[in-house]
Simulated scan of single mutants.
Amino acid sequence: AKDLDRPARFLYVLLRPQWKSWLVLGGYTLTLYGLILTIWGVATALEWPTIALVAGWLATALAIITAVYTAFLFAQAKGRDFWQSPTLALHMLLHALLAGGAVFAVLFLYSPPTAGWAGFLQNGLMLTVGLNLLVILFEMITPHPTADARRTVDLIVRGRFENYFWIGVVMIGNVVPFTLAWAGGPLMLAGAGVCILVGMYITEYIWVRAPQEIPLS
């Protein structure tokens, strides 16, 4: 709604819901997520362990839904075949994990973690980057069932978005951060975090724009 200069329209999503729309479901999820996080923060600050524990688990579940609901929202755009991919939700979940790890990797440059946390972050980044690259390559290599989806893949791999994909997504967003994380050390992990965030931005740019380059008729 803000993109349309009518942020007040968001209230219509909550007050006049169409329950079959993932825009509505996502809006309620985001609202509830914010509420539960607030409860968790207050309970933690006031040392109410039971409430904090329950709120923490609820927030975790809502965080997962928040991370992936856009995939289902995109899937409701039936005219964009590439967005119908079953891997899109996994793609977004991995991006949520990568974003969190990348931010911590950069912050740890200024506030060094314990050896245990540093090792956990290093292994976590390597694992999620590796999985992310596999999902992306699977999406590009696996034959798609419709002509429009195949044209979108061709546009990404060999067409207008080719350099963005191979340099920005594959190299900067995955290969380089995996190598830096494997090398280890605060500076290398911070560099991996920056590369991951840049690669994610480029990936989302491609995944949103490329399918819309295919004419609907």
Rank of each mutant, 00 (worst) to 15 (best):
M200F: 01
F165D: 09
F165W: 13
Y201S: 14
G191L: 02
A190Q: 11
I167R: 14
A192N: 01
A190I: 05
W166V: 10
C195D: 01
L187K: 14
Y201L: 15
L189T: 05
G191V: 00
M171L: 15
I167E: 04
V175F: 05
A181T: 04
P186Q: 11
V175Q: 11
L197R: 08
T179D: 00
I202A: 11
V194K: 12
V170I: 15
L197V: 04
I172R: 08
W182S: 13
L180S: 06
V198L: 15
M188Q: 14
W182I: 00
V198K: 02
L197K: 07
Y201R: 13
A192M: 01
V198R: 04
M188V: 00
G185M: 07
V169M: 04
M188G: 00
L197N: 06
P177K: 02
F165E: 12
P177V: 00
F165K: 09
A183Q: 14
I172K: 05
F165M: 10
G185Y: 10
G199H: 02
V176F: 13
G168D: 08
V169S: 07
I196R: 04
V175W: 10
G193Q: 03
A181Y: 05
A181C: 03
G168S: 08
V194D: 10
G185H: 11
T179V: 14
L197D: 08
G185D: 13
L187M: 13
V198C: 10
I202Q: 09
T179N: 00
N174S: 15
L189Y: 09
G184R: 06
G191P: 02
V198E: 04
P177F: 01
F178W: 14
C195N: 14
L197P: 07
M200E: 07
W166T: 09
W166H: 14
W166F: 13
G193H: 06
A183H: 05
V170E: 09
C195H: 03
V198T: 12
I167A: 15
